[in-house]
Design a protein around this nucleic acid. Structure first.
Length: 451
RNA sequence: GUCCGAAUGGUGUAGAGGCCUAUCAUGGAGCCCUGUCGAGGCUCCGACCCGGGUUCGAAUCCCGGUUCGGGCGCCA
């Protein structure tokens, strides 16, 4: 175990292969170097096994007492779990070893020794609570299950980008530091911007609409949104990732079609590209059937009133019990989890949702649900400046605060529509994860600000 | 915000007024062991959230606080 301090050591020499890249048939008797963490040391006396773990898997390093340099064996036995090591040795095909090979080491270099005891177990023998795991996320990520979630999240985002790009959308970014409260409704985090008050943006909504006036035609953004709501549930975060699109010369039905096709595409891509991670989590994914069921708001109210103790009046928003009732009802009837609720009362939707021309009390707004959870909401937008101003006023907001936005509507704003979908909610519903914090590396909630 | 529940070694737990010098597992230290793969065996180490109260006696009951979990509200 020589740390060759003072001597030049190229980092490239610390690893020639990931553990998963070692094919015993090709690399038998060849020398390789693997690098990673000491997962376990099993000392049986005459034989000692060191399990090295890297991002792609594990490799068994075998030291037979009679055949191993005594100093090397002694050092291997003393390895501290979760220390970072680089191990060079010969690949030996071996039926008794996991993955069909083991490594006969020549050199074991400790690059960084781990403290002991560890903040939590990494082998899966003892579970840790979410709070404990989040306090030590770096250790939690060394567990297979946790890594699997974030590999899948990566596949989800990759699928979003490829799907939207292939459908003519341009990826854009909007500012997160803004001067005014965008939509009313939710509370914002105030910050200091030099000598002025500013806010963290709750949504890219207003900016992506401005881009429609700019003629970008079809845009998308994947970015953080901030909500200062003091909600305290398993499905809310104060910092979340929103996937947003906006498309010109489209109505709400056009963008609903984009949405359902994208969701189906994401499921297909995750099944195709992350089957190992799905297996680690024990999740069997099924691509949702297209098109998604479209319930009108009126139908949704009827379902709630017929199937639960709740009695809703027309114009009421849907609470948790209502969403639960509708979601279970839809699943029982269709066997599908995803569905739309369309044709909402104009009054309970944001000012930018377009009312139906022939029935102003209904708007061209929709929510996309997964069982009991709202995943996405969208609408055809108001593109007529006069109507937009009156809608802003009727929501009790002051149009003066929206001048930067309204300006874009006066010089040629095409009709347009769009939606936003919560990335974390998409991932959690896909994987059946119960707490949204499980699918965020470093969640920000009512209480947690660190790490 | 509100209601309900919880807090015991590093981690996960048992515990219902005296049986607690606190259970078990995991972990750590050490010893034995040549095929482990949640290795096994033996020895040892390590904990009752904080503050008050009730009681002869409190991990256990009561009050306050803190933190965490869950429901609802609000929201996406």
């Amino acid at each position: 175990m020589s740390v060759r301090s003072g001597e030049y050591m190229s980092l490239a020499n610390l690893r020639t292969h990931y553990t998963s890249q070692i094919n015993p048939e090709e690399l038998g008797d060849q020398k390789v170097t693997v690098a990673g963490w000491v997962h376990e040391v099993r000392d049986l006396g005459g034989i000692c096994f060191v399990v090295l773990r890297d991002r792609e898997g594990r490799a068994q390093v075998t030291l037979v007492k009679k055949k191993t340099d005594p100093q090397l064996l002694e050092n291997a036995r003393k390895l501290v779990r979760e220390s970072v090591v680089s191990i060079s040795g010969t690949v030996k095909p071996e039926g008794k070893a996991p993955n069909g090979y083991e490594l006969i080491p020549e050199e074991i270099t400790v690059l960084n020794e781990a403290d002991s005891p560890l903040p939590m177990d990494t082998t899966g023998k003892v579970e840790a609570e979410l709070d404990t795991r989040l306090d030590s996320r770096f250790i939690d990520l060394r567990r297979e299950r946790t890594t699997a979630i974030f590999r899948i999240r990566h596949e989800v985002l990759r699928a979003v980008r490829s799907f939207l790009t292939d459908n003519g959308f341009i990826e854009t970014s909007s500012p997160k530091v803004v001067a005014t409260a965008t939509e009313g409704g939710t509370s914002l985090f105030p910050i200091t911007y030099f000598d002025r008050e500013a806010f963290l943006n709750q949504s890219p909504q207003l900016f992506k609409q401005i881009l429609m006036s700019g003629g970008l035609d079809r845009v998308f953004e994947i970015g953080p949104i901030f909500r200062a709501e003091e909600h305290d549930t398993r499905r809310h975060l104060n910092e979340a990732t929103s996937i947003d699109i906006e498309a010109s010369f489209c109505d709400h039905f056009d963008v609903m079609e984009v949405l359902e096709n994208m969701v189906a595409h994401i499921y297909e891509q995750v099944i195709g590209n992350a089957s190992d991670s799905l297996a680690v989590l024990g999740v069997e994914l099924k691509v949702p059937k297209l098109p998604f069921l479209k319930l009108t708001y009126d139908e949704a109210i009827e379902i709630v009133n017929a199937n639960s103790d709740e009695m809703l009046n027309w114009g009421d928003d849907l609470g948790t019990v209502a969403e639960h009732t509708i979601g279970e009802h839809v699943f029982k009837e269709t066997g599908e989890s995803h569905y739309f609720i369309i044709d909402w009362p104009t009054e309970i939707k944001p000012f930018y949702a377009m009312p139906y021309e022939d029935n102003q009390v209904l708007s061209k707004a929709f929510d996309m649900m997964h069982r009991t959870m709202e995943l996405s909401s969208g609408a055809q937008r108001v593109h007529i400046p006069e109507l937009l101003i009156s809608r802003i006023e009727s929501q009790g907001l002051d149009p003066e605060g929206f001048e930067f936005y309204l300006k874009a509507f006066r010089y040629g704003m095409p009709p347009h529509a769009g939606w936003g979908i919560g990335c974390e909610r998409l991932v959690m519903t896909m994987l059946g994860v119960e707490n949204i914090r499980d699918v965020v590396l470093f969640p920000r909630d009512r209480r947690r600000l660190s790490p």
